[in-house]
Design a protein around this nucleic acid. Sequence first.
DNA 1: AACAAAATAGTATTAATTCCTATATAGTAA
DNA 2: TTACTATATAGGAATTAATACTATTTTGTT
Lengths: 153, 153
Amino acid sequence: MDLKELEDKLKNFYNRCCQQHLKITPQRVEVYKALIASSDHPSAEAVYEKVRQVLPNVSLDTVNRTLNTLNKIGAAFIVEGSGDVKRFDGNLENHQHFKCIKCKKIFDFHCNEFDNIRAPEKLRHKFTVLRVAVYIEGLCQPCFEKENKIKSN
Amino acid sequence: MDLKELEDKLKNFYNRCCQQHLKITPQRVEVYKALIASSDHPSAEAVYEKVRQVLPNVSLDTVNRTLNTLNKIGAAFIVEGSGDVKRFDGNLENHQHFKCIKCKKIFDFHCNEFDNIRAPEKLRHKFTVLRVAVYIEGLCQPCFEKENKIKSN
DNA sequence: AACAAAATAGTATTAATTCCTATATAGTAA
DNA sequence: TTACTATATAGGAATTAATACTATTTTGTT
Ligand SMILES: [Mn+2]
Ligand SMILES: [Mn+2]
Ligand SMILES: [Zn+2]
Ligand SMILES: [Zn+2]
């Protein structure tokens, strides 16, 4: 991500905050910056460690609270998955996730067909749909190899 | 679910256990029965309460362990979602989930188109795909109404 | 500069899940 | 049936994740 893109995103984020009457605090900005700079879908703990390098006194609670706020205002979201700790994503572009159930790494991928998936008519009448995701899980290459090694012992 | 269906599933479950060299214990059977009798995608805690009515001395650890075992051998799975406590599903038929982000209720639905979704070629080469799910979240009717009530105050 | 609402740090608490270990049990083979 | 062994369990401790509490600080606004 180049400087221009970062500035754009930040300006956008400031606007979003103003609209929602959220104050622009150094903590909020640094959490947001740490998140959009990550491509590994970090946990709150991981974001905390990153922000701490800039704001050594930031509290984990603030990071947690802020990440949830980002999710609420649509500046980020919680990655879908089965179990495990919450993982966050600041990349709002259309994309999907593959998660390794062993090492818990989450990989972005993109499949055009999946972008256009909509909730069925029936469902949209009964519920307020806020998000539709295609979620794929399995094993990454290294984990698959390890698994086989163990089995053949 | 009628008696015949239950017996079928149990027999099937016993076979699955034998194949995997898992012992058939009363705890295992009751956890499995409690799960397939539920349609609300219970948490470990909820299954625990149910099993306790039959086996008062069962431990929460055993329920947790057993649910994870069921997931591992493919007799059940962990419902996909963003955050929150683990929820389990013993219904192996093709279906999808809608989750209300407020009350956390999980609703089954079924959309034929979604059954045939496969991981893209590219991904299948790089990873071992074990599961593909379409996950939808939003608000259920009652939660949507409550939300609006609050906003208009 | 003054103010009020909102946000934060630091800590405590709660909730979820896993780990530990002595005991009990299921499946197996005599 | 009985004896044996690997597996599973109960109960409690420990760990981890996430939230709640509260005094203090800060932001956005007069
Ligand atoms: Mn992503
Ligand atoms: Mn289901
Ligand atoms: Zn992996
Ligand atoms: Zn609801």
